[in-house]
Amino acid sequence: MIVRIMGEGQWRLADAHFAELNKLDDELLDELDSGDEGGFRRTLRALLDKVRELGEPLPDEALEPSELILPAADASLEEVREMLSEDGLIPG
């Protein structure tokens, strides 16, 4: 699966990593619901760091369609809320 982090680029991730990413996504949803700004910042950074750690970066000139788009690390609570589906940022 191709994952885009807004403002950074794309990474190719194996489907096997999505269970781990979904745990962080669930935490992020809880923090958004409670308005926990500090927790939200920590978890969003952890989620993006995990994508960078587990994924293979694609070259900037690659024009692969992104199957998942994640917000930039400095995105606000409101910006992330606008990106959410009923499953959070990561489906499943």
Rank of each mutant, 00 (worst) to 15 (best):
L48T: 05
L89I: 10
D60T: 09
L68C: 11
V80C: 02
G9T: 05
M6T: 15
R42D: 12
P57C: 09
L29M: 14
L24G: 00
E31Y: 15
G9H: 06
L28H: 03
D87P: 01
I2T: 12
T43G: 04
D36T: 00
E86Q: 14
H17T: 11
D49E: 15
R12V: 10
A72D: 15
P59H: 14
A16F: 10
D33M: 07
L77R: 05
K50Q: 15
E27Q: 13
P59N: 13
E67R: 07
I69D: 09
E8W: 09
D25S: 11
E27N: 12
L84G: 01
P57Y: 12
S66H: 10
R12A: 13
L28Q: 01
G92N: 14
A46I: 03
I2N: 07
L13C: 06
P91A: 09
A16G: 03
M1V: 12
W11A: 02
D74Q: 08
D60P: 11
D74M: 00
P57V: 11
E31A: 11
G55N: 09
L84W: 07
L68P: 08
S34R: 09
D15F: 02
E64G: 02
G9I: 09
E64M: 10
S76I: 05
L48V: 11
K23T: 14
E64W: 05
A14I: 04
